[in-house]
Design a protein around this nucleic acid. Structure first.
Lengths: 231, 231
DNA sequence: AAGCATATTGTAATATTTACAGCAAATCAC
DNA sequence: GTGATTTGCTGTAAATATTACAATATGCTT
């Protein structure tokens, strides 16, 4: 109980694993990679990597995300640390799980070593995952649900301009329940977090919907006053 | 990005640090220990220890709590993992923070090596803490606040029999705001989670209050039906 | 021009939250 | 034992938020 630390203690490894969420307008998706090395070679798994000894934990999570997607400035949150003795076949490996929210439109399958090794899976069609990745995914889903109900993070998953129907479908996909359209819009608009862009949908074979954008300034103003977003 | 793990990766240490909350009827308190070894010898700090290579992470947190308080079956939750490169002077040490809620009445300063080495500090009178323990404490406080508003965990901090005034003061101490007595009681009682014991306070120099107890059965019944506790 | 598909909007009933104050019951001091 | 003191205990009305519910609007297709 002294936290002195004997040489014997410095024998663990730490990884980060990322649950990368995307939304394609229909269902919530997760980005998985096809493992090219042991253990669990040729299996779909959460993207992750060892944390180098000279890199901060959070930075490591950002690094994994960037090397996979090329994206920067992405919304990320730590989910949980997992550290059962036998969770990794090669030794004592702790992992810290993060989730990230990305706009699918911004994500290009990189013309790189990753080109054919990453794919989006609908949240309800996830293959069997190695390690404790299934458990990690469950934790991440639950945390996303809790968060999206009280903080306006849904916008991180949507294009810059979006319709009210799109955001409703996002909330329905994440929370796995339906909302009444009139009530949902009433509440969302009353929060004054989004505003009309003045543009409308094009290339749809029906009445085009108004496009909205998320208004960061207003959100920050509300945050300062102590504001509760709840949907 | 392969999670293969070279020998070079297995050079980190992992600790757990516990934020142990108690409530004495007046203010929220945290149990700190007086460090007897380097680094930061003779400083107050959060109780913690290295995670042995053959012990599960969660088990390790429970272990730290038991060896300090002698208590078992305690409410604990993981808070966050901290892993900045230089957070520990002796090497790369990750820490996983937990918080625990204990009934102060059950905690006896152990007639052990810990006897004079642990003390309760009011949440607003915490001395300067070593490592990143201040940050850890802030995370734990915030998580406790979030949790206590939506799950009936407040009871973990109260004696088996308590008055409505006590539970209100607990909520006021944790959430750092005041509640209207009538409204607070109305809402709490309407949840049907507590019931009268039939006993009253004794040894008070004023009208004695009715003693209540937490009704676990009812809570479990509600949980199954999908129940939302919100105060 | 008619049909199709999705977008958009309001109202009434109900439930929840908030604001607010006076009497009750036990001990204490004299 | 009487009055003072301290904390316990309780209800109602107004305001606000939530829920349930369906008809019209608009652009495109044929």
């Amino acid at each position: 109980m002294q936290q002195t630390g004997t040489p014997n203690h410095f024998k663990a490894a730490v990884t980060v694993d990322n649950v990368i969420f995307g939304f394609d307008g229909k269902s919530l998706k997760v980005l998985l990679i096809y493992r090219g090395a042991e253990p669990f070679k040729d299996r779909w798994a959460l993207p992750g990597d060892f944390v180098p000894l000279d890199e901060n934990l959070n930075q490591s999570a950002i690094h994994v995300l960037r090397s996979l997607t090329g994206l920067d400035n992405i919304y990320m949150e730590q989910v949980h640390a997992f550290g059962d003795v036998n969770r990794h076949p090669f030794g004592r490996v702790f992992t810290i799980a993060y989730y990230a929210l990305i706009k699918v439109e911004d994500y290009q399958v990189q013309a790189s070593s990753w080109a054919e090794e990453a794919a989006w899976f609908p949240i309800n069609e996830i293959p069997e995952l190695p390690f404790d990745h299934m458990e990690i995914l469950e934790f991440a889903k639950q945390q996303l649900r809790n968060k999206i109900r009280t903080q306006p993070i849904g916008f991180e998953l949507l294009p810059k301009h979006f319709t009210l129907t799109q955001i409703q479908e996002l909330y329905e996909a994440v929370l796995e329940r339906e909302f009444d359209t009139r009530n949902f819009r009433k509440k969302l608009l009353s929060m004054n977090l989004i505003s009309e862009t003045g543009y409308r949908q094009t290339d749809v074979s029906h009445r085009p919907a108004m496009l909205y954008k998320y208004d960061t300034k207003r959100y920050n103003r509300f945050l300062e006053r102590g504001f509760s977003f709840d949907i």
